[in-house]
Design a binder for these strands. Structure first.
Lengths: 251, 251
DNA sequence: AAGTGGTCTAGACCACGGC
DNA sequence: CCGTGGTCTAGACCACTTT
């Protein structure tokens, strides 16, 4: 294996991130079969040309995202798939498309609308902004394997530049906030509800009124800790669903 | 502040765990106000009598559990509360009682039943056990602020010793699996659904049939990676609900 | 320029599982 | 006993924010 240090000198990502990429690729290409043991930390560190500490930094991220599990005295193992309907761990903040791609499902956008708005009183409270603040509202309905299964409303706090960019941007809001916005999106705090579909949501998802939907209300923060967007997501969980890895806290 | 090394020599927990406890207590007693900046890593490490690396191990756990947020060049800040209804982050695997205690809510057990059973075919598949394996089934209904809001079914793979212990154990199954079972429970993989209450669930939670409930299906694993229990949870999310911190993966 | 958190190293020793 | 991951250190340098 090629040391991650030398794969491309102009790639300025931290070594532990390159290690994450390298290990992930070894798993995806089948070089390390699902369920099998990884080389020991000492071996893997040498293979990748990094110190054991740096490798462990990479492994703890992979563990947090549920991709590997570590067992003292035994080794580090590639997690086996969690079932055919599982889209991925909700602890990762990533686009619906990436989620679908990773689980090898066909994905499509059924509806998309972008507009500039001024905040309602509720949005002013939630986003802690004044009534003159400009917001960009994005509505999307997405499908997996042809079935509509997610309806999403984004409310992004926008300056003039962001407004212009977002109105013409073709990718997802999440991608914009992560790759183009500066400072970039870092994390979200998400509340998890189970609710009945009202007429609006039922219409968007082509289901009957009063069907149960998973409802996520997310406040999104950039790397400087500023609240930059509010997202309301409505998900059908009859075919595809999120998982989460829960851990016993250190005691 | 007292160095964590000296607080009690017979306490054999790792230093970073003691650091987590020390910092958590400083926040809970108000020594470090919510929203404020922690002392710098160098200062805090010296105060606690540990190296900066070890302190950072502690801080990254606190960050994963959403208790602090770190900002390069600025500092580490105590996370402000996420709203009155939030019970806590779902990424922590802990008892409903602890969840309620931490958010200062009154908590009660409304119904509790423990029995030995033999697995149905479905349970045999889910738990990967044979038809003669002994299971302990625990049913619980719990309330917060007097309102029934959680119904839970545990199916624990039990040897004779566990069976005897569990049948007479008064605490929660989770507590048993974490503190008494050996090897202890380490983590769970949880699937997240929104469903309609059927007659059983509606009855247990004293709600109407077809009300929406959050449904969690959890496979629980010990530190050696063995599947040891299956839990099915049904939660009302109209008054109290989980949150989760989602992060943009390192790229 | 000063102070913060982020990355990285080399090395030591410990705890646990399995032979 | 050996090999595994877990804990811990001291120190160096980098990237970012604030003064």
């Amino acid at each position: 294996m090629e040391p991650v240090k030398t794969i491309s000198p102009e790639d300025r990502r931290p070594l532990y991130v390159k290690a994450i990429t390298a290990i992930t690729e070894m798993v995806e290409t089948g070089q390390i079969p699902v369920g099998s043991r990884l080389p020991s930390e000492a071996e893997l560190a040498e293979m990748l040309g990094i110190s054991r500490s740096t490798l462990r930094e990479a492994l703890s991220h992979l563990e947090t995202y549920g991709m590997v599990t570590r067992q003292q005295g035994r080794g580090t193992f590639v997690t086996v798939s969690q079932g055919p309907g599982v889209l991925g761990g909700i602890e990762r903040l990533e686009t619906f498309r990436d989620l679908a791609d990773r689980s090898k499902k066909e994905h499509g956008v059924i509806y998309r609308k972008v507009e500039s708005i001024t905040p309602t009183e509720e949005l002013q409270r939630d986003l802690k902004v004044g009534p003159e603040t400009k917001l960009v509202r994005v509505e999307i309905v997405e499908s997996i394997e042809g079935k509509p299964c997610m309806y999403l409303e984004d409310y992004v706090i926008a300056d003039d530049k962001m407004e212009t960019e977002l109105l013409s941007y073709q990718g997802s809001v999440l991608t914009y906030l992560i790759e183009i916005n500066d400072p970039p999106l870092a994390y979200a705090r998400t509340k998890i509800f189970s609710i009945c579909a009202d007429d609006l949501v039922a219409g968007k998802l082509s289901i009957q009124r009063d069907r149960p939907v998973l409802h996520l209300v997310e406040k999104m923060y950039n790397t400087v800790g500023d609240l930059i967007a509010l997202t309301k997501t409505y998900l059908l969980t009859d075919q595809f669903y999120f998982s989460v890895t829960r851990r016993v806290p250190p005691r």
